[in-house]
């Protein structure tokens, strides 16, 4: 399956990936409204890690042997049968944070408003995740490796 890969040598640290991820996972999907009124309810899942000159965007790796799926106590964390992406069904998630504890990449976060896990869904329904699409320097790529 296609995955998102960061090319840290070209990451500007501008954080446009974070910004567009938040918009994509907001209610209105409109950037100004999302930032003004929906920050608390949006569920962004892309985070830029930065230390000195080095920066890169981190999202869920959608591991082949996803520990979060094994650790999930309700079965909310599952693999989408068609895309292969690791997805959290927020209706079933009870917010026990087992997934957060086992995730080797630190890519699962607590939801901002609801007590459910928040993670990258590869922008289900889009050909290219918005973080990749909006990276101005193509430091994020979406490809098979």
């Amino acid at each position: 399956m296609k995955r998102i890969f960061a090319r840290e040598e070209y990451c500007l640290g501008c954080r446009l990936c974070e910004i567009h991820c938040l918009v994509k996972h907001s209610k209105s999907k409109r950037i100004i409204k999302a930032f003004r009124r929906e920050q608390d309810t949006a569920a962004p899942a892309c985070r830029v890690e930065e230390s000195g000159r080095v920066s890169f965007a981190l999202q869920c790796r959608h591991c082949e042997d996803a520990r979060c799926i094994e650790a999930c106590i309700t079965g909310a964390m599952h693999r989408d049968p068609t895309t292969g992406a690791v997805i959290c069904d927020t209706e079933r998630c009870v917010g026990c944070w087992s997934c957060i504890m086992v995730c080797p990449a630190g890519a699962v976060e607590r939801g901002r408003s609801r007590q459910v896990a928040s993670k990258c869904d590869l922008c289900m329904g889009e050909d290219t995740p918005v973080c990749v699409m909006h990276c101005p320097n193509e430091a994020l790529v979406y490809e098979e490796r």
Binding site: L12, G13, C14, R15, L16, I19, I31, I32, F35, R36
Partner: peptide
Amino acid sequence: ARCIGCRVCVRQ
């Protein structure tokens, strides 16, 4: 009215 305070400008 349009600025969302994302600070991309500050970082760039």
